[in-house]
Structure formats: C-alpha cells, structure tokens
Nucleic acid binder design. Structure first.
Lengths: 287, 287
DNA sequence: CTGCACTATGAATCGCTAA
DNA sequence: GTTAGCGATTCATAGTGCA
C-alpha cells in the first residue's frame, strides 16, 4: 500500500517541510473568500491574493517541473459584483513563475435551488491549471469517454465531405487519416466537466465529488506518483489518491478534519501490514 | 415594425453617432485576438485591451443606467498558455466605471475537434455581463426552463430520437417549441448555457446561434427596447432583435456583412410599408 | 407528420520547417 | 534568435431529404 502523509497545521508552515520538486500533482480547493472575519478559513476578498501568494510560492517550489497544479476556485459576489481576486490571483501567480495553461469548467449539475432579483444560480466553478513549464506529464488516454451514438452509423461510411476534406489542403477537419477512426469507441474529453455535487455524504460537506479529483489524478499522475492537497478539508482528494495507488500528502489546520481523514485512511493498520499487496490487488475493482 | 439602424464603419467612429443613455442592451462578440484577420485586421493579443477600451468607453456612454452589456469573448492559447488579455480587460473596464456583475458560461456542445499533447478541446466561452449600476432591468420569467421531474416523465414517452433531439431542451431550455412548455412546472435557469454552434448554415458563419442572443434579449429587454451590436458580423443578434420586436442597432466595418444584414432585415420594404403588422404576426412562426 | 440516413461545418492548437 | 506557414490531429450537432 502506498504511503499517506498527513500534516495538522497551517498550509504555509507545513509546506515548508516538503522537499523541492517532489510532488507530481497539487489539487486543492482553498478556503473561499469570506467577509466574515472569524469563521474557519474565511479570508477577506480584498486580502485573498496577498494571503495566497506565499502559499503558491511554496507550491511552486515543491512541484516537480513536469507536475501540474489544479486550483479549484470561484469568486464571490461582493456588493452585487463578481469580485476580481481570482483574476488578480492568476496574473500574480504568472509573475511568480507559474504558467496558466488552461481553465477547466466544473459544471455542477445538481446545484441547490435559489433565486435572486438580478442573478441566476451559480452552477459552475473554475478549475485553473498551472504548470512550471510547457512540457508536463499528461496521460490523456486514462480519462477518455465513450463516443456519442452518432459514431456507429457515421463511421460505417464516411460522407462525401469527410473524404473531400481529406483531399483539400486548405480545410482541416474530420476525415484525415481515416484509419485512425476505424473501430474507435472512445473520444478525448473536453475542458468542461459535468459532475453533480455530492449530496450522499451526510456527516460533512465535501469540497468536491470524488470523481473530480479522481479525474485529474488519473489525467496527471501514474501509480506511485505523489499527490498533494494543502487544504484537504474532509479529504476527498486524499482518499481518492490512496484508492488509486498514489502517494498522498494532505494538510489541514482543523483538528477534526485531520482526525477524520487519518481514521479513514488508516483502517486496521496492524492487519494490513502483512496483507498490503493482496489488499491493493483486490481493491482495484472498487473504482 | 420596429426600426433597424445599420451603420457601415469602424465601431469606435460609428458609436459616436449614438446618443448618451439610449441603449437597453449591448450584446456583441468582438473579433477575438488574432482571429478573423480578413475582416477585422486581427488584433494582437498584447494590444487587445488597449484596442478595446476606447470602444467600451463609448458603450458605457450610450448604455442606459439600467441597461446591460453582454460581452462574448474567449482568450486564445499563446505559447502553450491561455493569454491573459481577457482578465486584464475585465480589470481595466472596472476602472473605466463598469460593474462586472456576472460571468455566464456558454458550453458549446459541438466544438471543433482536435487533440494536442497537453490540451483538450475547448468547449466553452465567456459571456461577461457588465452593468453601469447595481440595479438593472432583468425579466427573469421570460427565460424560465421546464423543470426536471415533469420533463423527465414527459420525455420518457417520446421516441429515442426525440429524446436525443430534445436533450438540449431539457438541459438549457433553449428548445424551439418552448411555448409548449409554458404553464408546466418551470424553474429559473442557471449561469451555464448549453448550446451548439450553428452548423447547418451555409454561406456565412455566425458568431453564435440565434438562441444565444435571443435568450439575453428576452432576459434584459422588453418589446420596443433598444439592442446594440457594435460588431454585428452576420447579424444574428440584429436579426433576432427584429424578430422579437426590439429596436436594433448594428455596426460593422465589413461591407459584405453590412449589405447582407441590410437585405435580410429589409425584405420587400415597399410592400411591407402598408402591411407591417400582418407581416410581423405571420413572421412569428419563422423562428 | 414521424423516423431515419446523410451531409456540412464550427472563433482550434502544436510542432516542425522555411525564410 | 524570430516569425510565418503548413501538415497533422480530432467530434458532435443541426438541417435536409426521403420513405
């Protein structure tokens, strides 16, 4: 069984314990900005960038050159406006040395109902992808999705246009190198992720559903790679990382969260010491 | 029939002809950076903000205090990174006096295919909502969508094909026969819009499908209100505005586009002079 | 009018090579 | 060095025509 390292404490301080260039994937959902001063994790919107930059500097240090940082974030509405701290954060992180490679959209399908006089329900969040360099590890085949039904009839006989487009040098498009398409059942996904928010978890509200970190962990890491979540909360990404055989590192300042994740990820430790290989093999079908 | 004002020329110069506080809704899709070079000359990503700010200043001037500005835009990839001109534009427009009220996501279900070593297909674009003040006109009831339960049971009785065809209807409420759903259980939509790009239309490529401007025009204006598109292109928003009885103002620098939109929006002018009411009524089924 | 097959096409990006 | 051009790669949808 792969290791799990859990740290109880402030993200900035605990990150100092990690070595340079040691993490393959950072995926986290930091505490959202909050105007209430004294709630857990609440950072005032106007101070958000200032608060996060030292942390992202540490993250830049611990991430391998080929690694990826996925930041789940969404700006709050303040005084009827979307606050700009996320935009400013992206610009500031670029100055820090990060590359803003991509922005995925998480479309939350079963978002809670609600109505406001001049605003609809907010059913999406940003999943910002940052990298240290243009070349990074990505295992696209691990997250392929079934093609639409259209493919069955469509690929049986390519249309006139499909063939013509192949000949035409100007128009690019479907039909080039048709051999690639014979028997193709799966397609590459897009940068929009449709996932319902988790509602089955009774005891705690997870930041995101398991499928979300699972998707990114499969996309950006191999078995045995290291996944870091510096704001693990209820530990969804840590738990998923363990399940699919990644080395997980989790940090949280809240003792209840820390204990809960520790318990969940260290079940029957003594028993498993001798049986880890077997356990790991059997556990594969669980995903 | 409501008026249509078309201007042939540069957006910045033609906007000067419009009066202060005279427009209820601005909806436009300006040329993206380095895109559409043949018609708009192509704006370099690094100069995009600088190029757009004088235009947005004019837009701020002509928009009514209760009006809304919807800006359709997406940053392109430059050297493996998402360029930051859109983020910078939002920050700069706020300094200009705009409020960044909301960001809708347009999920383009049929995006262009493609595969790259470190990137998936880009299936979404931003629809930035800007306002002059916190209180603006919004007619939320005009864009309600059928609710889950009822839609599910109703659709289950339909054939496989119908089900597939109507999926978009259920998700987004942008179905054509939306009137059939009125009186059923309706819900307010979200800030994620699921719509395919237009694909059947030969001869001209529209920036967005008709249902997109239609949705925003219904949401932010009443009959007789004024809708402005300073980069009308093939005129989708102008045409829709006319169809649903809004006063439309369109600007484009390209003579072919101008002529095409003029022809399309001024059919059989002489005949219609006497029969405009009848024509308008009959024309409803055209959509 | 419905069901089905067929067709056209959409704001793309990367890496290599030539100038 | 720097840029510009071009080949290679890749899906999903709506409209049309016809039985």
């Amino acid at each position: 069984m792969v290791d799990i390292d859990l740290y109880l404490g402030d993200a900035l301080q605990e990150l100092a314990h990690l070595e340079d260039n040691s993490v393959d994937l950072i995926i986290t959902s930091p505490p959202y900005a909050d105007q209430r001063k004294h709630t857990y994790g609440g950072i005032h919107p106007d101070e958000y960038v200032e608060w996060f930059l030292p942390i992202s500097e540490q993250l830049l240090r611990v991430l391998k050159p080929t690694g990826t940082f996925i930041l789940n974030i969404k700006e709050r509405v303040v005084s009827g406006e979307r606050h700009t701290y996320v935009l400013e954060l992206i610009l500031a992180m670029r100055k820090q040395g990060w590359l803003w490679t991509e922005e995925f959209i998480w479309h939350k399908k079963n978002c809670y109902p609600g109505k406001w006089p001049n605003r609809f329900r907010d059913t999406w969040e940003r999943l910002l992808q940052f990298n240290k360099q243009r070349q990074f590890k990505m295992y696209q085949e691990e997250v392929m999705v079934p093609m639409g039904d259209w493919a069955q009839t469509r690929l049986r006989k390519l249309s006139e246009t499909d063939l013509r487009r192949d000949e035409s040098k100007v128009e690019s498009g479907f039909g080039k190198n048709i051999s690639n398409w014979i028997g193709r059942r799966m397609a590459y996904p897009t940068n929009v992720l449709h996932m319902a928010t988790e509602c089955g978890n009774r005891n705690h509200s997870a930041a995101f559903p398991e499928r979300l970190p699972e998707w990114f962990i499969n996309l950006f890491t191999e078995e045995g790679d290291t996944v870091l979540d510096p704001f693990m909360g209820s530990g969804t990404s840590i738990y998923v990382a363990q399940r699919i055989q990644r080395h997980a590192i989790g940090i949280d300042i809240n003792h209840d969260y820390y204990s809960m994740v520790y318990e969940a990820t260290h079940p029957k430790q003594a028993f498993l010491c001798e049986e880890e290989k077997t356990y790991a093999a059997n556990n594969h079908s669980k995903g």
